[in-house]
Design a protein around this nucleic acid. Sequence first.
DNA 1: CCTTTACTACGAAATCTTTCGTAGATACTA
DNA 2: TAGTATCTACGAAAGATTTCGTAGTAAAGG
Lengths: 125, 125
Amino acid sequence: MKPTDAELEILQVLWSKGPSTVRQVHDELTKTRDVGYTTTLKLMQIMQEKSILGRTEEARSHVYHVLIGEEETQKSLLDRFVETAFRGSATKLVIQALGQHKASREELDEIRALLNEQLNQNSPD
Amino acid sequence: MKPTDAELEILQVLWSKGPSTVRQVHDELTKTRDVGYTTTLKLMQIMQEKSILGRTEEARSHVYHVLIGEEETQKSLLDRFVETAFRGSATKLVIQALGQHKASREELDEIRALLNEQLNQNSPD
DNA sequence: CCTTTACTACGAAATCTTTCGTAGATACTA
DNA sequence: TAGTATCTACGAAAGATTTCGTAGTAAAGG
């Protein structure tokens, strides 16, 4: 699954807001970017054809929902990204990400826990 | 700087192998993908126009070199990626990356050190 | 030399993605 | 009920990226 940039924007809205009409998605999108209503409509129709989205047509305005998981999609985007941008080195990516984005105490603890897990797998004392 | 996918492939070769001719880059690319020689040539010419690459024309076959830094480019790609794929949460990205890619002992230590730095900044004991 | 090979230049086709205009249908409102 | 607003469908333009064919030129090998 390799959603295009515009598709990803729509996915983000649907993942965060849940099932929505074209109008609702479009209103979200136009908060940051200027784009015509029929553009959003068309994109969502295309995404439905590709089985990225499903929809219920009961009401006059259709309600769309995402058919692919956010984490699963992120996982595959991440794999691809590590390959193309970091020559396969996830570690380099992690280091850069940690270096340039601040994390909260809780987040750091979570990451630390994960690290410990890997450390143990790697060379258990 | 937002190199396209094909451009990024070429950049990877040049970053890893150093200054190279079109032939050399092309031979690397065809190890994984099937593409015509003139395609690679054209891409590199375009990249030169965009000032992503420079070249010396002394020899019959030109030698190209990268004009943008690998880390700097990765940084900007990463920022963009965190936004579009992880809704801005670098932490989610880090967690996923750690979860799905194995790291060596040394790498884990490096990450751990970085974490400690951030922890201290966040809530120094 | 003359032929084959390797290279650059470049236009343009092919493909993929995004954008929009127009048309037709239904609901809402004065 | 006439007019306005809102929705879907859809073709096709516009834009961006990738691919390749052809032409011209210089080198290399017989």
